[in-house]
Amino acid sequence: MATDRSSRQAVGTIQTDGFPPVLAAADAMVKAGNVTLVYYGLAERAEFIVAVRGVVSAVEQAMAAGVLAVEATKRGALVSHYIIPNPPGNVDSVLPIHYTSASSDFWV
């Protein structure tokens, strides 16, 4: 179930074609903004996805850095990216975008 804390924060996702760009995006996002990486996984067709959480302004800053990092990567490409400010509790509880025990040490 979603915590009150996570429901007040934005979530940002970047989907890439290939592993190197998603790794570059994840690295750039956590370095550029005060965000927590909450999800990483495979999407369909050998694409990868990474999601971060934090306050809206930090997620916007992190996403901008992540997109630039993907575009600077020589192999792979940006498939999509999206920010959801203040996702409602039902979205947070159903999708894999919530804080977990694995990310709890890095909560922002």
Rank of each mutant, 00 (worst) to 15 (best):
G12D: 02
T100W: 00
Y99Q: 08
T100Y: 02
S7N: 11
G89V: 14
Y82I: 08
G76V: 01
A2C: 12
R45G: 07
V67L: 03
H98E: 11
V59P: 01
Q15M: 01
T73H: 12
R45V: 05
Y39D: 05
T3K: 05
A2N: 08
E60G: 09
E60H: 11
I49P: 00
K31M: 05
S101K: 15
A28P: 09
H98R: 15
V108F: 05
D105Q: 15
V38G: 08
V108P: 12
G89F: 09
I83V: 13
K31G: 14
K31H: 10
P87S: 01
G33F: 02
G33E: 02
S7Y: 11
Q15C: 03
A64F: 04
A43D: 03
L23H: 14
G54F: 04
A26I: 04
A10E: 06
H98V: 05
A72S: 15
E44R: 14
T16M: 08
A24V: 11
V30T: 13
P87A: 02
D27H: 11
S93P: 00
I83E: 10
A58E: 12
A62E: 04
P88S: 04
V94A: 13
G18S: 05
K31Q: 08
A26L: 10
G41M: 03
R45T: 06
D17L: 13
F106P: 11
S93G: 00
A10P: 12
D4E: 09
A43S: 14
S7L: 15
A46M: 08
R53W: 02
Q15V: 04
V56R: 14
R45D: 04
A102R: 01
P85W: 14
W107D: 12
